[in-house]
Amino acid sequence: MKRLLSFALTALAALGLAATAFASDIPVKGSTTVQPVMQKAVEAFMAKNKGVSISISASGSGDGAKALIDGSTPLAMMSREMKDKEIKQARDKGVTPKQIIIAYDCLTPIVHPSNPVKNLTLDQLKDIYTGKITDWKDLGGKPGPISVVSRDSSSGTFEYWGEHVLKKERVFARAQMQASSGAVVQTVSKQPSAVAYVGLAYTKNPAIKTVSVNGVPGSVENTLNGTYPVSRGLYLYTNGEPTGDVARFVDFILSEAGQKIVADVEYIPVKAPKAAKKAKK
């Protein structure tokens, strides 16, 4: 009887180990801009695939690229394209980056709700972020110094803003650099003098106010029709063609159900041809 019990316990332990071995644990790292859509897509995917565990760590697109290169993630979230030097580093380590566009986005300036400014031009935004305009009175606001808030240099959002708004000029030295889009929103919500920029999914917060650019509000519609001037793609990167559960997740986020999640968090589905055309400009 004892032998039978011991055998049964051994068999159950072996089955447990086998189940653990076959369970899939996928760490995903990278962009905080991509995080909102990934969080909801991961929850929906895991609900239908009980044996798959996907964990998300968001700290910036640069960190996503590093994680893909060093092999600590099979799936990197990025709000910019990988740089040539990152692709070279990857290939030197035997990694072949594959880009997958999962959505489109627009970068939207935000201020405190008490700020009367409703619109800024691209030239004004450039002058704010390079330190040439430092007082709100020069922009139609109440007199007082502008508190410039920016993403940090590991962020794809920072790099895209720097390239398309600052035209590669250096950001104002006294800018408050934040490690995530959530931190940017929190900072602006507490500082009446602040200005910042975030992806569209982070603008649905009553503690901040969005500002138009060149007279055009940041929105899904204005990104699709090509009138909003600061739009971009959102990406996943894998090492070569994705396989197994990673491939299944990628297929899910690009499916009709996955793209509905993209729309639900106020990003723009990749199926929209006008968005694709805009992002290539």
Rank of each mutant, 00 (worst) to 15 (best):
K118V: 12
K137Q: 13
I87N: 05
T134Y: 11
I69M: 05
S61P: 00
K85L: 11
A67E: 05
T108G: 08
L107R: 00
L139Y: 10
I100N: 01
K118A: 14
M82D: 07
M78I: 02
K126G: 09
I100F: 02
L68P: 02
Q99H: 00
S153D: 12
P145H: 13
G156T: 04
A103I: 00
Y160F: 12
M78T: 13
P109G: 09
S61C: 02
G141S: 04
S114T: 15
D135E: 11
S147R: 15
G94P: 11
G94C: 14
K137T: 03
I101K: 02
K168W: 10
Q124C: 07
E159T: 14
S153N: 11
R80K: 13
T134D: 15
V148C: 07
D105Y: 01
T130A: 08
T96V: 13
D135H: 08
S72Q: 08
D70C: 08
S114P: 10
K85P: 00
C106G: 15
D138H: 11
A103L: 00
L125C: 06
L68G: 04
S147I: 14
T121W: 04
I56G: 05
P143F: 13
V148D: 03
G94L: 14
S147N: 15
P145T: 14
T157W: 03
G144C: 12
S59L: 01
W161H: 06
S154I: 01
G62F: 02
L75Q: 06
I102R: 01
K83V: 00
G131H: 09
Y104I: 03
A103W: 00
V165P: 02
G141L: 07
N119I: 08
K85T: 14
D138A: 15
D105C: 02
D84V: 09
F158G: 02
E163P: 04
I100M: 02
Y160K: 05
I54M: 15
T73G: 06
T121L: 06
A76Q: 05
G64P: 02
S55Y: 03
T73I: 04
C106E: 14
N119V: 10
K98W: 01
P74V: 00
Y160N: 05
D63E: 12
K85V: 14
G60L: 03
G141Q: 03
Q99M: 11
S72E: 10
Q89N: 14
M82G: 04
K85M: 11
E163Y: 05
S57H: 07
N115W: 08
D127I: 03
L107D: 09
D135V: 07
A76H: 06
R91V: 12
V117D: 09
K168Y: 13
I56T: 09
I146M: 13
P109V: 08
L125P: 01
Y104D: 09
W161I: 12
V111P: 12
P116W: 05
S155M: 04
T73M: 07
P116E: 08
L122G: 12
I110S: 04
P109L: 05
G62Q: 02
D105P: 00
V117C: 12
T108S: 15
P145I: 04
T157G: 10
T73F: 06
I100C: 00
I56A: 09
S59W: 00
I110Y: 07
